[in-house]
Design a protein around this nucleic acid. Sequence first.
DNA 1: TTATCAAATATTGTTAACAATAAATGACAA
DNA 2: TTGTCATTTATTGTTAACAATATTTGATAA
Lengths: 231, 231
Amino acid sequence: MKDSPEDQIVNAILDAIAEQRLPAGTKLGEQALSDLFSCNRANVRRALASLAAQQVVELRPNRGAFVMTPSPKEARDIFQARRAIERTIARHASGQASAEDIAFLRDNILEEAEARKAGDKPAELRASRQFHMRIAQIAGNLVLERFLSELTMRSTLILGLYSPTGSSSCAEDEHDRIVDVLESGDTDELVRLADQHLRHLEAGLNFDEPPAAPMSLKEQLMVPRGTPSAG
Amino acid sequence: MKDSPEDQIVNAILDAIAEQRLPAGTKLGEQALSDLFSCNRANVRRALASLAAQQVVELRPNRGAFVMTPSPKEARDIFQARRAIERTIARHASGQASAEDIAFLRDNILEEAEARKAGDKPAELRASRQFHMRIAQIAGNLVLERFLSELTMRSTLILGLYSPTGSSSCAEDEHDRIVDVLESGDTDELVRLADQHLRHLEAGLNFDEPPAAPMSLKEQLMVPRGTPSAG
DNA sequence: TTATCAAATATTGTTAACAATAAATGACAA
DNA sequence: TTGTCATTTATTGTTAACAATATTTGATAA
């Protein structure tokens, strides 16, 4: 069961965004992508159309496709929507987690902590996202799961833009308590924790200074003057 | 400011689905669409990719694109998600409606009632959908607005499949009360009404008998035996 | 009639070439 | 140097032809 070239491209880009390897504003050239995935431009274009429909990519006519750069207003909307959806997910997941689910989540928390200690940001983000998505799976509503998938993706872009360096991602002790309460079956408390967790995440954002300018691939390679590389 | 051919196709198909002119399962041939919109197949294919990303169209490899046929389980997920989202919308719209908003909604209710009396199902569905979407606009969250747009679209497909003929769409007196409470600013009551309204809509569904078989364009033109056309 | 199968037809998937537009380059003048 | 403009280059948008795959059609046999 192999994926179509289009799905490959979509998934690769989504993964890269989810792990903050592709920052907001990055240009996604058609040639570059068709070379990378060794397929023709028609497939690339369809993939970009899909990503644009998911609001993860912005399509500027005659100029190309760019990783979406959420505005402060969009960021607020996204976190508000996340709270609505994750609260609902929490309500329906409560008391439904199997032993494997709990084990997975506990393991996931360790994985995230290790990645953080090791300074491996992509792994940390991947683990954190997996935590939220696993609970969505437990809730068993595919529509909410897909919506949350889109929102976590865009949240990652927001963190990359508006989060004072390092302060990003989730507080791990909050994840800890969430698993405990998820296991215990206290629905109201679980909903409360989910809401609070997202509020904390949002509170860490800083919209005062404008986001760093989008870098083209070329600019990413040129080290700016006055920024010695290592010594 | 003219739309790209791709957007035209996407919007035309979405409108047709929203008004139940395109029933679930309808095949969307590439040639047919490129003829209709006088553009090339590349644009059609991108449009179909967008619609597939919105879960409104199903893409079967080597077989083509079809209007999505929601299963009973999907229908449940969709209405559950709608309740979560429309409750949140209600909470944020409460007390935020301008005089024009209220006037629009009242007018919309009349329009829907007239369409129903006249037996104009498309107009009735269009009005009903507009009612929900206008309240979403009042709430002012573009993310929730877009999610609801997708869900109302898919709800229309569900009604077409599982609603005993005629019983579909919203009870108009419920819309009436919703506008009254929206105007009054009683948030909790508005949320309650929104939830109840959607539960009533869902309660009218019947999953017992399998949905009518998807019709091809050809079959739609052949009048089945024993069904005299007019007299 | 009904079932089976091969040929014919239609549809989707892929590719390459070309046109239209935007971005980058470099000459020129101030 | 710095700014402006024409030229060149690169990128996106469009189109048509072809290949691969389904579907339909019609003939044949039970």
